[in-house]
């Protein structure tokens, strides 16, 4: 299985950016993505965030995992929700005995060893992110180690269920992902949090990106000028750099365009809300200069909360529900529908 999965990594099922892409694309060489350059062998890391609780991050993570596992991909779900780790509940499994903290404390050497099986074949779970990342100041090297190992897990797809905040730990997980998926619900508070999240992730990425030597000071200058020059959006920041160094600005723009942001609108009820995703993505393109593709909508569906009560993923509990079908479509939009 593992062989088959690796050899077809170029087909439609492949999850976006392959680990070597950064190295072979000359234009991207000076600006590596994220904190950790993903050097693992897996096809892709999907991180699901949104800057707020109760907006369907766990719903999407768990059910994407179930769907992909059913399709024969080897999937590991990582519960990185600091405040409310509940993936195991959604999957109907007991809180796993071995957790991420065992890996951090080096009780186990290999992250693979803390992966616990679920009732779904091919679907594993890494739990216990809570105590590790919740620590006030997790050591940077520790975090790097986790991030590195996550992206090296010997599986096809890693799905990280992030917490609701916009702290560095959450952002760094988000930034190693090949697909940074944001969920929002059609409420101003959620949209506000999403924009806050996007901006924070973006600036974090600029801060941690390996920028070309001559670009770094300019970007830092722009970040420092942010408040007093009215550089309110990422687009402003790029313009600032571009005015001073057109070539560097262009490279920065390129880098930003590769920011792998995706959007899912959850709890959609009205036709107007159905159009919200496209509107948000257009507004982001226009005013943030960020490309965030709209993967799809998940309707508000009673089947969802009913399945949560039964502690079963909706995809198993009610596979024909509108919510389940929409999640399958979202997998397709990620290039993982096959």
């Amino acid at each position: 299985m593992s062989q088959g999965a690796q050899t077809d990594s170029t087909d439609a099922r492949s999850v976006g950016v392959t680990p070597t892409e950064g190295a072979v694309t000359p234009t991207s060489a000076p600006i590596a993505s994220g904190v950790v350059t993903s050097t693992g062998i897996n096809k892709g890391v999907i991180a699901v965030g949104g800057g707020k609780g109760g907006i369907g991050k766990t719903l999407l993570s768990a059910n994407l995992g179930v769907f992909l596992a059913q399709r024969g991909h080897r999937v590991v779900l990582v519960d990185a929700d600091l405040g409310g780790a509940n993936l195991h509940t959604c999957l109907g499994v007991k809180p796993p005995n071995t957790t991420l903290s065992d890996f951090v404390s080096r009780k186990v050497d290999n992250l693979q060893e803390v992966v616990t099986p679920t009732s779904v074949p091919n679907l594993g779970l890494v739990s216990g992110a809570l105590d590790v990342l919740g620590a006030a100041n997790p050591k940077y090297t520790q975090k790097l180690r986790i991030l590195r190992e996550v992206s090296r897990l010997q599986v096809d797809v890693v799905i990280i269920d992030l917490g609701g905040g916009t702290g560095f730990n959450i952002l760094d997980f988000f930034l190693i992902a090949d697909h940074g998926v944001l969920t929002v619900v059609p409420e101003p508070t959620s949209i506000e949090n999403a924009y806050r999240f996007i901006k924070a992730a973006y600036y974090r990425r600029l801060k941690t990106a390996e920028l070309a030597w001559n670009l770094r000071p300019l970007v830092e200058e722009a970040m420092n000028e942010r408040s007093n020059q009215g550089l309110k959006t990422p687009a402003d920041l790029v313009s600032y750099v571009e005015r001073r160094d057109p070539a560097g600005g262009a490279r920065l723009r390129e880098e930003i365009e590769r920011f792998p942001l995706k959007l899912v609108v959850n709890q959609v009820r009205t036709p107007e809300e159905e159009r919200l995703g496209v509107a948000i993505s257009e507004a982001c393109r226009k005013y943030f200069g960020i490309h965030m593709s709209h993967l799809g909508n998940i309707p508000f569906d009673d089947a969802v909360w009913q399945s949560v009560r039964k502690r079963r993923p909706v995809l198993l509990d009610s596979p024909d529900s509108r919510a389940s079908r929409s999640i399958i479509q979202i997998a397709g939009a990620l290039g993982l529908g096959g």
Binding site: P186, P188, I191, R196, E282, A283
Partner: peptide, 18 residues
């Protein structure tokens, strides 16, 4: 029409962006 979808008075799409 596309721009109205996010700039229109009833749209939430740009809430808090500006």
């Amino acid at each position: 029409r596309g721009m109205l979808a996010y700039l229109g008075a009833g749209s939430m799409a740009m809430y808090s962006m500006m």
